[in-house]
Nucleic acid binder design. Structure first.
Lengths: 352, 352
DNA sequence: CAAACATACGTTAGCGCTAACATCGCCGTC
DNA sequence: GACGGCGATGTTAGCGCTAACGTATGTTTG
């Protein structure tokens, strides 16, 4: 193997070998070669052996583009995403890729220039044009989500992390339950109420967390204090945290992600308000750095990897369903998990 | 334009329209349709108009798989990467995707299960089999890098962030210069020497930073203190930081990334050693959270987006070169930038 | 023992597109 | 006014593969 072209006449064209070449060497038709490759029965063991040997000798590699043309399936899936630099989307994408690999699919990405309906539509269009078998959309934004409802129906679509209420399957973490958990943790520690720094208003995830926060507060008979809206960045958490730090009534803050919680931590520190002794802070996501914040951050973990792999499975079965005419799969919710560290504590007793 | 199928005889097959269908409506051959699509001259304006109108009417979309089969170019590029969850690779990938989009290419990702020669080879193989026109490899690991030297030569390859010394183009940040800068900053502040927490020994980036750190120290006539090796995680920075915090002689620490620096910050804080008054700490990367660490982290910024887009340009020109027989492009180095914040300060004067 | 049926192949058509060549007017040229 | 040339188009061949059918052999069955 490797000395194959030593004593051979110059019958080796520069182009890579194709099925017919393999067939010629093995003494069979190109179709039999195809049968061997596709694991068809109806090929006698000796023939199969000769074909395999010929493939080895020539270093034959099947051309997947030709195969895609004739079968109409490219074994490629598209992922639409906005900012894959953020931990959440990046981890989800990673989970998707692993699962896709295992399922024999490739992932092609299309990131958005802007977070609006038109961009999402254009990205889906581009992917479809390229011949993907299905599309995953990681765009947890209100406006963008309903772009999915107007998307073409001839390619299976799955919304990841968040999506429209109906129409297409959605695979996401149970944000409401997560927010209820986080808020409840603070209430259980004895805090009178919990302040909330939300994400951008158009974010579906943020909306669900606000929902959970409100619901938990109301079920405890408390009136939710005014909500503050950030933009996921540590900077916005810091700015808003400074506002909160001036109000002595604030003893518990629930930030809608860990980065904003980091900003709050810093703001409280600068204002001389000790965390967790004077103020408790909780985040959301559980990014890898959270355990090393000062103090280590209590947060609500989202299992992004699970969301990724689960959404891939849903997409694959949607593709099967489309092919066989079966019923499309349903979405699913991944449970959130409360991670208690040192940024939350029982409420301090009022001074003398 | 939407009532097209209202009074029309049942001549609309369920399959999507192809060039021949467009040609039939426009009264031309499918080849003329092809010419219009590919912007060929030699098509009269009226004909072009009729073809365009027919395309519109039918909602024709070119089939890029068929095109790829006949042209031998898929306009798809592969990216091999290890952990796209980390900020560096994620940002680079993002930069690559943006540039690819602009250049009319798609990106398909192949992430590695393990960081070794075989995995890298297998990933390259998979991508090539899928028909990519070129491959970018973001695997700054010593062993994996030389897998690139044994890679097939019939598909252009570019190493991103780090790579072998020669053989294939490498696009990366100038790690050595960055480390020299960071170390120099500490020396300039009056520190007698600078301790270093490196990344994993097999990481090429870590190796270059160690190199820069040593060189700068030696050029200042200092003997580099023993080096400590971490694994990029905040945890390892914390563990190693605790060791350093016990040594009163340590006044300046250069961590090879921001996460480890975060761990050091935490370790120093717990040991009661004030940063920056007693100990200065500098990181590397400038992740978005760094300005909100306590204290805000001085670090060496890497422009990952620039690395991504630049490496894409290099790959595209390598593809052109292969096609036209021109000379392959060279790699390039992106400059690092020192970002001074509050975790570094002039060395404290010795006590009474 | 002919009919019926597997099994192991080969042959023929495409998939939808582009490349290469062929064809047909129509122009200016000498 | 016959001729070269060129612009605008049609025709013919594939790209490398799979699907569908055709055709030899054996193998069973009533």
């Amino acid at each position: 193997m490797g000395v194959a072209d030593e004593g051979r006449p110059p019958v080796r064209p520069r182009r890579p070998p194709v099925m017919a070449d393999v067939g010629r060497i093995a003494g069979v038709s190109h179709q039999t070669v195809s049968r061997v490759i596709n694991g068809s029965s109806h090929v006698s063991p000796p023939t199969r052996g000769r074909v395999l040997a010929a493939m080895q000798e020539l270093g034959y590699r099947p051309n997947s583009i030709a195969r895609a043309l004739v079968t109409g399936r490219s074994r490629t899936l598209g992922v639409v995403s906005f900012d894959t630099t953020l931990y959440g989307p990046a981890s989800t994408l990673f989970g998707i890729e692993r699962a896709a690999h295992a399922a024999g699919y490739f992932i092609i990405i299309a990131s958005l220039k802007a977070l609006d309906r038109a961009s999402v539509g254009e990205a889906i269009d581009r992917l479809q044009l390229h011949g993907v078998d299905g599309i995953l959309v990681i765009v947890p934004d209100e406006e963008s989500a309903d772009a999915l409802l107007h998307a073409p129906t001839d390619v299976p679509l799955v919304a990841v992390e968040a999506g429209p209420e109906s129409g297409i399957p959605v695979v996401a973490v149970d944000q409401v339950a997560g927010a209820v958990m986080g808020t409840g943790h603070l209430l259980d520690l004895g805090h009178e109420t919990v302040w909330h720094i939300s994400g951008p208003p158009s974010s579906l995830e943020s909306q669900r967390r606000v929902e959970g926060w409100r619901a938990r507060l109301e079920s405890a008979g408390r009136t939710p204090p005014p909500m503050l809206s950030g933009d996921w960045s540590a900077r916005s958490g810091y700015d808003l945290g400074r506002r909160l730090s001036r109000d002595r009534a604030v003893t518990a803050v629930f930030a809608s992600n860990d980065q904003m919680a980091l900003g709050v931590l810093r703001a409280m520190h600068e204002a001389g308000r000790g965390v967790p002794h004077e103020v408790s802070v909780i985040g959301f996501d559980d990014i890898p750095e959270s355990p090393y914040f000062m103090p280590p951050l209590t947060t609500v973990r989202q299992d992004f990897g699970e969301v990724g792999s689960r959404s891939l499975r849903v997409l694959v079965s949607a593709i099967e369903a489309l092919k066989t005419g079966g019923r499309p799969p349903a979405g699913s919710l991944v449970e959130a998990e409360l991670i208690v560290r040192s940024s939350t504590a029982v409420v301090a007793v009022a001074g003398p």
